[in-house]
Amino acid sequence: MHPVYVWELPVRFFHWINALSIVALAVTGFIIGDPPAIQSATEASFSYWFGTVRIIHFIAAYVFFFNFVFRIYWGFVGNRFANWKNFIPYTKRSWIDMWEIIRVDILQIKSADNPNLGHNALASFTYFITFLAFLLQVLTGFGIYATTSSAWLPALFAWVPAMLGGDMVTRDIHHLMMWVFALFAMVHVYLVFYHDYIDWNGTTSSIIGGWKFQEEGKEEREKELDK
């Protein structure tokens, strides 16, 4: 076994900032969508808690957005594992790999071992879909935010609700997407543990320290396959 530096520091930072902001966004978003009802005789002027929840959502939204933009940039300048090309299945090989992984890891009807070191083909494709989900969430989020803000950035998204047919649907899509994120998180965390367990390559700790472990000679084999 020899260690390979897979996730560079910026990628690790992206990952954790992303994870934290999504948790914050999903929690505050859920509260915004269905606030707890409090029976109260107080006057509105004494409290602002719902406004605070919303402001946290908006701040987290900005963090999430710029972090996302940064990751796209890093997809062009980062190492080969971070490269954008990993995420778009434009070769036949990646589709074949994907099918292989479905049979081996998901359906468990075939056993083999997994030659990928970075993301495997199926995971990459899933992340690609996730990126599209990020994009949709940013578009719908900033779209409904546009009229409530005088800043230039949200104003750039004012066309989104107009295209979708109004704020009503835009907001519904935005709410629905929250569940996509929640389901993704469940499966994602499980699969990390699964691969750590099955492939023994230190997947879980790799996103903290950056290193994965590879058997000797595997890299050559991978290169061979790439040809």
Binding site: A37, I38, Q39, S40, T42, S47, W49, F50, T147, T148
Partner: peptide, 22 residues
């Protein structure tokens, strides 16, 4: 944005049914 009940929104004070105290 022009609703006079808006301060109640920001304060998280919501009506839950048409006949409740809120």
């Amino acid at each position: 944005d022009t609703c006079y009940r808006r301060p109640n929104f920001d304060a998280g004070l919501f009506v839950q049914s048409f006949d409740d105290e809120n």
